Computed example of a mutant assay.
Amino acid sequence: MIFVNYLLMCLVFGTTFLAIKVGIDAGAPPFFSAGLRFLLAGSILFAFMVIKRKATFSLLLRKEMFLTGMALTFGTFATLYWAEQHLSSGIAAILSATAPLMVLLLQSALARQRLSVHALAGCLIGSVGVVLLLLPGLTVNFSRLWVIGCISVLVGQVFYSAGTVYSRRVVKRFEDTSPIALNAAQMMYGGGMLLLLALFVEPIDIGPWLAPKAALSLLYLIFAGSMTGHTIFYWLIAKTNPVFPSTWLYVSPLIALCLGAALYGEPISVLSVIGGITIVAGIVAVNLDSLKTLLSKGRPQRSKAGESKAV
């Protein structure tokens, strides 16, 4: 179930970079678009959980929801949406692939644990794999705004990493609350903050939303990107660890490339194939300890005298 949900999340997130770019290119204001996306998605999910009696409105009064929303939604997507006005979706994907390494470093520092060599190597290998995968079709237009856009995405990944690690603590603190409700609450806060930012820095114009591409982009990001993808992400944090679900940033570009080849006949270069293999190797290395645990659980346990137990 964990791996099925992980692949579904990667499939959804693999298309969100392009969906964001489509909406922005159609003229939709970036901060207002992001705020509307997350506020609506969070509100729909939270209302559903309240109706199902799996959440109460008192959850919205907890500071943990505000802090998670500020890091995981506001800080991450305010920077990403702004940056994609000046960057290609490929560059944004490559820069975002630094997040798993940031998560690993932050988690190790906070827990005061010794950094796993194979996990660190896996993050670096995965990042290299994303670069190799996207390199053949990469376009770069150097300018001052391009550089600022790159820095903006990296700052967003710092917020994302902090929010991911903090989310793990929040999930443990609210063990009796569904991860879906926790995700919905933080999206409502993050979306509200993005809309507030939009009121100060963007002109409010409904004209761009009348364009079919902008409207479809928003609907897809609400229902697929936020309600489905982010809910699975939060669920995976609860079930595994902060680093594992963050590796979607390695897999999603690979899925996007494969879909382009299968649906549109886009060519795949040898370099991209090497990049795909490198990504898989990096993910295996990052999650080596977890994979060993899963494999050991699958072995038959023997307790009879003279027989060794599975480790």
Rank of each mutant, 00 (worst) to 15 (best):
residue 1 M to W: 10
residue 18 L to I: 13
residue 25 D to C: 00
residue 40 L to H: 06
residue 42 G to M: 04
residue 45 L to V: 09
residue 46 F to V: 05
residue 48 F to S: 10
residue 60 L to K: 01
residue 65 M to K: 01
residue 76 T to F: 08
residue 93 A to W: 03
residue 97 A to D: 05
residue 103 V to A: 00
residue 107 Q to N: 15
residue 110 L to T: 13
residue 112 R to L: 11
residue 116 S to P: 02
residue 118 H to M: 08
residue 126 G to W: 04
residue 130 V to D: 03
residue 130 V to I: 12
residue 144 R to A: 15
residue 149 G to H: 01
residue 150 C to V: 05
residue 159 F to W: 03
residue 162 A to C: 02
residue 170 V to A: 06
residue 173 R to H: 13
residue 174 F to L: 14
residue 175 E to Q: 13
residue 179 P to E: 05
residue 193 M to Q: 09
residue 193 M to V: 11
residue 197 L to N: 00
residue 201 V to Q: 12
residue 202 E to I: 03
residue 204 I to W: 14
residue 210 L to R: 07
residue 213 K to R: 09
residue 223 F to Y: 11
residue 227 M to Q: 11
residue 237 I to H: 02
residue 238 A to L: 04
residue 241 N to M: 08
residue 246 S to P: 09
residue 246 S to T: 13
residue 258 C to M: 14
residue 258 C to K: 06
residue 261 A to F: 04
residue 266 E to I: 02
residue 269 S to Y: 11
residue 272 S to L: 03
residue 277 I to L: 11
residue 280 V to T: 07
residue 281 A to L: 15
residue 282 G to A: 08
residue 288 L to N: 09
residue 289 D to T: 02
residue 296 S to F: 08
residue 300 P to S: 09
residue 300 P to M: 11
residue 301 Q to N: 06
residue 302 R to T: 10
residue 303 S to K: 07
residue 307 E to Q: 13
residue 308 S to W: 14
residue 311 V to C: 01
